[in-house]
Design a protein around this nucleic acid. Structure first.
Length: 579
RNA sequence: CGGGGCGUAGCUCAGUCUGGCAGAGCGCUGCUUUUGGGAAGCAGAGGCCCUCGGUUCGAAUCCGAGCGCCCCGACCA
C-alpha cells in the first residue's frame, strides 16, 4: 500500500476525548474514528488489524473442529421472551420494531438463535458433538461506553456454541475451546490470565474469563501467590480465618454516640474492624415483577459485601441498596443496624466470616447504641449462610490454604461458559439417543471480543514513539520510507523496485512514497507501528545498502540491497516465531 | 440513572468571568526556498461559536431548557 493513497491521516496532537494512551494513539495514527459514544469506524489500517485478528481466531476455531456460520443480528423479540432473557437482560437489549410493528432485537449474543437453528437440523445423538461459531457484529445498549474500544455498543465478537449429549462430553468440548483460546491470544501477542468467573446473564454451571492485565481494565481479579488459583473478584473465594478462639461472652448493650461507620466504631472502642459485624440492607427485585423482598446481609467489619455473590445466593435477583430515608421508614436505624433481634424484619444472609467469629460488636438497632459480644447462633441467626464477601488483598487462598491473594485490574478478552441445558430446554430442543429416548443437548458457549484484542494488542506494544504491533496482526509487516522520493529519480526507481520485490515475495509493505521531509515520514512510521522499517536514501544507496530498523529489537542495521528481501523475510519469520 | 467536566475552523484550543469586528497553532490549497527525525516565507480557502427559547440597542459571552461528548460511580455475557 502506498501512503500517498492511504485513506486516513495521522494527527499531531492528542485527541481530546481519548483517555488512555493506547486509544489516543489509535486515533492519532488513523486506525479508528469515533462516530458516537461507543461506536467506531475502522479505517484501512485498523481494519487490516481487525481482519488479521479475525483470521487467527477463524484459523484456530477451524483447527479445533468448529464450523463457521453466520447468524442474523436482527432477531425476533419472541425468541428472547421464550428464553426469559428479554426480562433479565433489561435495557442492554436493543429493541426496535419493523414496519408491521413486529418486535425485534439487535442480537447482543446468540444462544437463542443458535439453539433454535440447532433444533431445525439436529435430531439424533449421531449428530453430536457439534461446535458452531461465527464472527459477527453484536449490539448492546451499554449504560456507559468507556475506555475507547473496551466497552462499546456495537462490536465484533467471535461466539462459538458447543452441543453435547452429556456433561462429560461438554467438558471435552469446553477444554478444546479453552486450549484454542490460549493459542489465539498467544498468536495475537496478547498475554492473558485465565480466571474463574461469574456466569452472569448467560447462566450455567461455571465459566472462565481470559483477562488481559491492565490498569485501564474495569475488572478486578484475585491471584494466589502460591498456587495457580485465579478468579474474578465477582467469583473469587478465600478462607475466613478465625481470629479468636475465645469463649462466648455475655451480650451487652453499650452506648456508642456518633459511631455510624465501622471505622468510627472501632476507633472509638479501640478495637479492630474485624471484631465488628457489618450489616447492609438491600431490596431483592424478583425478575417476575413480584414485590421486593428486604434482605439484611451481614459480613465481618473488615470485609465488604459482594453484591454479585449475594445476588447469586438469592437465585440471581437484582439488588437495590436502600437509602437512609427508606431504612428509617422501615423502622431501621441507619448506622446502627444488625441482625440481633431483627430476623423477623428481613431475610438475613450471613457471610461465613461472621459464623465462626466470636464476640463481635454489632449494631444495637437503636441510635447511638451497639451490642458488644454478639455471637452467631446464640444472639442471632441467618436464613442463609454463604460466601457473600468480596476478597480483600492479602486474604488467604481457599485453594491451597497457604498462599495470599493479590488483586489486579484487567480487561476481559474472552469468556467461556458451561451453559448446560438452559436454552435447549427453553426452546424444546431434543435428540434421540441409541435407544430412542429423548435427550436434551447440553451447551457450552465461548466468546472473544475482537475489538478488545485489538485494544489490548495496541496497549502491549506501545512506546514513547507510538504503536508497535505484534507481527501477526500488524497492519503491514514493514514500512518502507523513501527519502528524496519526490526529487531523486534513482531513489524513486530503487524504492519502487524494492517495493515490488518485497510485495512479490509476500511481504506486506506500507510504502511511504509521499516525498515529505524525513522527520515526518519517520514519525508517521513510528506512530503507525509496523514492526520493521526500511529506509531507502541516497546515503544508503551509495553504499549499496538498505537501512533496516526493527522496532522490537531496537536494532538498526544496514543490509546489502541484493539480499534485502531475504533478510526481511527472515526477520519476519523470527518475529512470528517469538509469538 | 446520580456526580463532575466540556461543547468556538478538519484537529488542539484561546476568547465567556467583565456583552460591542470571529481568533491562534497545526492541518488543507497555491507559489518560493528547504530535505536523515514533525522546516521557513508569501498568498489563500475554511465558522449555524451544539440547539431552541429568553434578557438586551447589541449575545460565542448573561439566564432557562434540551442535546451531545468525556470522566467517576451505579450498571454491565
Amino acid at each position: 500500500m502506498r501512503m500517498s493513497q492511504l485513506f486516513g491521516k495521522t494527527l499531531r496532537e492528542q485527541p481530546s476525548d481519548a483517555d488512555t494512551e493506547s486509544h489516543a494513539l489509535l486515533i492519532r495514527a488513523g486506525f479508528v474514528s469515533q462516530l458516537m459514544s461507543g461506536v467506531y469506524s475502522f479505517l484501512p489500517l485498523g481494519n487490516r488489524v481487525r481482519l488479521k485478528i479475525e483470521n487467527i481466531i477463524r484459523n484456530e476455531m477451524d483447527s479445533a473442529g468448529a464450523q463457521e456460520i453466520l447468524m442474523p443480528a436482527l432477531q425476533p423479540l419472541q425468541l428472547w421472551d421464550q428464553s426469559g432473557r428479554s426480562a433479565t437482560m433489561g435495557e442492554v437489549l436493543f429493541q426496535l420494531t419493523d414496519r408491521r410493528s413486529r418486535a425485534l432485537v439487535l442480537g447482543p449474543t446468540h444462544e437463542e438463535v443458535v439453539t433454535d437453528l440447532l433444533g431445525k437440523f439436529i435430531f439424533s445423538y449421531r449428530d453430536l458433538p457439534l461446535t458452531l461459531y461465527q464472527i459477527q457484529t453484536k449490539f448492546r445498549d451499554e449504560a456507559r461506553p468507556r475506555g475507547g474500544l473496551v466497552r462499546v455498543k456495537e462490536f465484533t465478537m467471535k461466539d462459538a456454541y458447543s452441543f453435547d449429549l452429556t456433561d462429560d462430553d461438554l467438558s471435552t468440548s469446553y477444554q478444546t475451546m479453552f486450549d484454542s483460546y490460549e493459542k489465539i491470544f498467544s498468536r495475537c501477542g496478547v498475554p492473558v490470565v485465565p480466571v474463574d468467573a461469574d456466569s452472569g446473564a448467560i447462566g450455567g454451571k461455571g465459566s472462565q474469563e481470559f483477562i488481559f492485565l491492565s490498569e485501564n481494565g474495569e475488572d478486578t481479579i484475585a491471584q494466589c501467590d502460591n498456587c495457580s488459583y485465579a478468579a474474578n473478584l465477582e467469583k473469587a473465594e478465600f478462607l475466613r480465618e478465625n481470629f479468636s478462639e475465645e469463649p462466648m461472652l455475655g451480650l451487652e448493650k453499650i452506648e456508642t454516640p456518633n459511631s455510624t461507620t465501622i471505622a468510627e466504631l472501632s476507633a472509638s472502642l479501640g478495637i479492630e474492624n474485624r471484631q465488628t459485624a457489618k450489616a447492609v440492607m438491600y431490596m431483592a427485585i424478583p425478575h417476575n415483577g413480584g414485590s421486593e423482598i428486604p434482605i439484611l446481609s451481614i459480613v465481618r467489619g473488615d470485609l465488604e459485601i459482594s453484591e454479585v455473590k449475594l445476588s447469586n445466593v438469592l437465585g440471581g435477583v437484582n439488588l437495590r441498596p436502600l437509602g437512609e430515608d427508606e431504612l428509617l421508614s422501615l423502622g431501621l436505624t441507619p448506622g446502627f443496624m444488625s441482625a440481633v433481634q431483627l430476623e423477623s424484619l428481613a431475610q438475613v444472609v450471613a457471610d461465613e466470616s461472621v459464623i465462626t467469629a466470636r464476640n463481635l460488636v454489632a449494631g444495637g438497632n437503636q441510635k447511638d447504641w451497639h451490642y458488644k459480644n454478639s455471637n452467631y447462633g446464640r444472639d442471632w441467626e441467618a436464613s442463609i449462610t454463604a460466601d457473600i464477601a468480596e476478597v480483600i488483598a492479602g486474604a488467604r487462598c481457599r485453594c491451597c490454604s497457604s498462599g495470599e491473594l493479590s488483586l489486579s485490574r484487567g480487561v476481559e478478552m474472552g469468556h467461556i461458559f458451561r451453559v448446560g441445558q438452559r436454552y435447549s430446554d427453553a426452546l424444546g430442543v431434543v435428540v434421540q439417543d441409541s435407544t430412542g429416548n429423548s435427550i436434551t443437548p447440553t451447551m457450552g458457549c465461548y466468546g472473544i471480543g475482537v475489538g478488545r484484542i485489538f485494544a489490548a494488542a495496541s496497549e502491549v506494544g506501545i512506546n514513547e514513539n507510538g504503536l508497535r504491533w505484534p507481527i501477526s496482526i500488524a497492519p503491514y509487516h514493514c514500512s518502507l520510507v523513501a527519502l528524496g522520493f519526490d526529487k531523486d529519480e534513482s531513489i524513486r526507481e530503487d524504492a519502487e523496485l524494492l517495493y515490488r520485490e518485497l510485495t512479490e515475495a509476500g511481504v506486506e509493505v506500507l510504502f511511504d512514497d509521499r516525498g515529505l521531509r524525513p522527520g515526518v515520514m519517520f514519525n508517521d512510521a513510528d506512530l503507525i507501528g509496523n514492526p520493521i522499517r526500511l529506509t531507502v536514501s541516497t546515503r544508503n544507496q551509495k553504499e549499496g545498502m538498505v537501512e533496516v530498523s526493527n522496532r522490537y529489537s531496537d536494532e538498526i542495521s544496514h543490509v546489502a540491497r541484493d539480499s534485502t528481501v531475504n533478510h526481511i523475510k527472515e526477520e519476519i519469520k523470527v518475529l512470528f516465531d517469538a509469538l
